[in-house]
Computed example of a mutant assay.
Amino acid sequence: MLSLIGVVVIVVGLALRLNALLVVLVAGFCSGLVAGMTPTEILEALGHAFTQNRAVSLFIITLPVIGLLERNGLRDQAERLVQKFRAASAGRITLSYLVLRKLTNAFGLQLGGHPAMIRPLIAPMSVGAAERDLSSAAIASPRFHSLSQRIRVLNAVSENFGNFFSQLIFVASGGLLLIKSVLDKSDASVSLADMALYAIPTALISLLVMFVMCRRLDRNIRREQRLLREEYPDLSYEGGVKESADSGSDTHSISVRESQS
């Protein structure tokens, strides 16, 4: 039972919302001490595991780059760009990204991800499309905040659908090779091409499901936009119309006076 002390430490530490890295390190030390390892041997094992799997942490390099781009207005520029295209909607943007994600995965290109594409580009563009023709008060309202969160959720779902349900189409993908090795150990001879072929229907079904979800999202956005325009009218626009109308009436009165003189 003492050999499971590391699992208990992880469960308790995460339940108390402590620092995840510190919890894992403490759990590793507890498991190593129970197994009879010295602190030096535990540190050596941790260092060896890190160096063997250091490629997994390469995504950390992209985080400061994305942070710098966002700090310099990447998200704002994405919103302004999409608002210039009247036909662009949150659902169409999300579906287009899903199609791109599936095509790149089919050729083994890992172009995408939540930190690299969804947060800095796809989500701001989708929310920017929903903000079109809305007043600043409507955009700052709790109703639109809730709508923007639903849009971001569907953006994240599109990334998961695009990656998970299409990565096995590529014959040299890591998941497909893992399945191949397991089947070979079980004396089940299946070629990589056949397994990739069987992954295509799953990718198409996930695309169809996301198409329906994007259509529903666009309908919900149009309904919410109508309610927001009624609840938060664009007063600046109305003021401009009223001002122009007043100026027109003033011009008309001046012309009448001149004609009478």
Rank of each mutant, 00 (worst) to 15 (best):
R226A: 15
G108F: 03
L63S: 02
G47E: 00
E231Y: 05
V56D: 00
G248T: 11
L177Y: 06
A199S: 15
P142V: 10
Q167F: 08
F107S: 03
L154D: 06
L147V: 06
L217C: 05
C30I: 11
R101F: 11
L204V: 14
R229M: 12
K185P: 06
Q77M: 15
M195W: 03
F50Q: 02
I118C: 05
R71F: 11
V171G: 03
G67N: 13
G67S: 15
A137Q: 12
I118E: 05
V24E: 10
R119G: 02
M1P: 03
V56L: 09
S135A: 01
T62L: 11
L98N: 02
L68P: 00
G239M: 12
G108Q: 01
L147F: 03
A193N: 12
I254E: 14
V182M: 14
S135T: 07
I205G: 02
N163T: 14
L235V: 13
L22K: 13
S186P: 07
R143L: 08
I61T: 03
R152G: 04
E70A: 09
G13F: 07
H252F: 07
L176N: 01
R150M: 04
H48Q: 07
T51Q: 00
L228D: 03
S166A: 15
V11M: 11
C214A: 14
E44K: 01
D133S: 12
L192Y: 04
I221V: 15
P201L: 02
V34F: 10
R226C: 08
A123P: 01
D246F: 10
L177T: 00
R229S: 05
G240V: 11
Q110K: 10
R222Q: 13
N53Y: 09
M37Q: 12
D76T: 15
F161A: 08
R86S: 14
T251P: 01
F211G: 08
R257E: 13
M1K: 05
I221T: 05
V65L: 14
G28Y: 03
T62A: 14
S96E: 08
F85P: 04
V171Y: 03
V23R: 06
G28H: 00
D246A: 07
I169D: 06
I200F: 08
I42S: 07
F165W: 09
V26N: 04
I179D: 00
R143F: 00
G6C: 02
L33H: 09
V56C: 07
V182K: 04
I139E: 02
I60L: 15
A199C: 06
Q149K: 15
R150C: 10
L43Q: 00
R132Y: 06
G28C: 13
L68R: 09
S206R: 06
L46Y: 06
R152E: 15
S189F: 12
E70P: 05
R216H: 13
N155K: 08
L217F: 07
L22C: 10
P39T: 09
L204H: 10
R132L: 08
L21H: 12
E243P: 04
D234R: 09
C30F: 15
L68Y: 10
S136V: 13
E238L: 12
E238G: 01
T38Y: 05
L95M: 13
S158R: 13
N163D: 13
A140W: 12
H145L: 13
V56F: 09
L134Y: 06
A106Y: 00
